[in-house]
Design a protein around this nucleic acid. Structure first.
Length: 410
RNA sequence: CGGGGGUUGGUUUAAUGGUAGAAUCUACGGUUCGGGACCGUAGGAAGAGAGUUCGAUUCUCUCACCCCCGACCA
């Protein structure tokens, strides 16, 4: 991609109505656009990051047998009425004309998934299985805040699993937990597996994946020794307590909840008559689990964890591009070499953002640092004097010269 | 939902009860070219409504929207 053709531009200053690091940097860099409080559009650069995160999630979900599907955003009220959730505060209800609301916007899909499953599941032979989607969720948060960390509209990956027994559910539950750890790790994030409450979803205890970060709104207690953790909302632990698992020291930490998993039991299968015949011909309710990851929140968390005074420092796997090729000056030799590297990269399918604009070196460097692409390659008259280009990693201070013939961009 | 703050060009801001000034930005021209270069010319702004007033961007009220703290949070 040539930067001269990129739709968005860099903002020199952050809009004053954005306070959080993630929204300031993402808006300045042209990744996202705020339409309303807690409602953001993803611009070309930002969408690339979201798609990278989505790709990681899809790979890992597919690896544990998840089948991708896509459910609706508009839900008839009978779904939530069936489980007593029509009255939940945060749901957006939709009225047609002057009538009472008959629909709500998708805020989660347990009911939808259960009803669909009920049409297809007859036998224990149909179980277990799991389906997932990456889809928009709407939640009318009383207070949207912190940029992408807490929005009213956001992309979520939600996985629903269906089992013949509690035992089988928990086997899969643990498999998903491992899968989630991998997903966050690939996104550059260390997650803490935290015991938490189930809210409107289930009376069971559930688990959250928390990333330690002062920008977070959750408080968790984590054992320094074994990593055992409980959320403040359910715990009896406190700062300095002894870990109930290993006797280590428990510390209070601020954190961001990037994912959660719920063992749902039969609440939703009972509401939608989701039953199966077991080996003896007896009818039983299907046991369900649900599992969520907020993509935008993951993206925001990455920014909150990886930035410096100059801008974002994307981990490689989620970076919008892998290489930022920067041309300095418009000397014909410089242009020629830069174009050659770019064209070769395009043929190789490399993810290169080529800064072909006529701007000063300082401005180009400042903008490259803000966007935060992992590797920067500079071509200038100065580097060409040594038949070289300059290669610098965004997360390192020093740059090195590399001979042009040794540059292979892919 | 309770409390606090806020709303002036695309963005950041200044002053002002009487012609809204700048920076950045955008366009054009010129000089530049390794850490947000410089000169010139041009373009572009008061959230909505009501009130007070000869006159309101400025004062008052209502509403909307935004940010922050708290409550809430799947």
């Amino acid at each position: 991609m040539k930067q001269s053709e990129l739709f968005t531009k860099i903002l020199r200053e952050a809009p004053k109505d954005e306070q959080s690091i993630n929204s300031q940097l993402l808006i300045r860099g042209g990744f996202i656009y705020k339409n309303s409080a807690g409602i953001y559009s993803f611009l070309p650069l930002g969408l690339r990051v979201i798609q990278k995160i989505g790709l990681i999630i899809r790979e890992e979900m597919n690896a544990i047998g998840g089948q991708e599907m896509f459910m609706t955003a508009l839900h008839d009220k009978h779904y939530l009425q069936a489980t007593g959730r029509w009255g939940v505060d945060v749901i957006f209800k939709v009225a047609e004309g002057k009538k009472e609301p008959a629909f709500n916007l998708s805020w989660t899909h347990e009911e939808i998934a259960a009803e669909i499953a009920a049409k297809y599941i007859n036998s224990y032979k149909d179980l277990p299985f799991s389906v997932y989607q990456i889809q928009t969720k709407f939640r009318n948060e009383p207070r949207a805040k912190s940029g992408l960390l807490r929005g009213r509209e956001f992309l979520m990956k939600d996985l629903y699993s269906f089992h013949a027994s509690e035992e089988d559910l928990f086997k899969y539950y643990n498999l998903v937990a491992e899968s989630y750890k991998k997903i966050f790790k690939r996104c550059g994030l260390d997650s803490v597996y935290t015991l938490a409450a189930g809210g409107d979803f289930t009376l069971n205890n559930t688990h959250e994946f928390q990333v330690l970060c002062d920008a977070g709104e959750d408080t968790i207690y984590v054992c320094e020794k074994c990593g055992y953790s409980e959320n403040k909302e359910i715990t009896k632990l406190q700062d300095g307590a002894e870990c109930p698992k290993c006797g280590g020291l428990v510390k209070e930490k601020k954190s961001i909840e990037v994912g959660n998993i719920f063992p749902l039991g039969t609440k939703y299968s009972e509401a939608f008559n989701l039953k199966f015949s077991d080996e003896k011909g007896g009818k039983k309710y299907v046991v369900m689990g649900s599992y969520g990851i907020g993509l935008g929140r993951v993206m925001a968390t990455i920014v909150e964890k990886f930035y410096d005074e100059q801008g974002i420092i994307w981990p490689k796997e989620v970076a919008p591009f892998q290489i930022h090729l920067v041309r300095i000056g418009d000397d014909p030799k410089v242009v020629k070499v830069a174009e050659k590297i770019y064209e070769d990269g395009q043929k190789q399918g490399a993810e290169v953002l080529y800064d072909d604009r006529d701007k000063s070196a300082g401005e180009k460097f400042a903008e490259a640092d803000l966007i935060g692409i992992p590797t920067r390659i500079v071509v200038s008259e100065r580097t060409l004097e040594k038949d070289s280009v300059e290669v610098k990693e965004r997360n390192k201070k020093e740059a090195k010269l590399v001979k042009i013939k040794e540059i292979h961009v892919r």
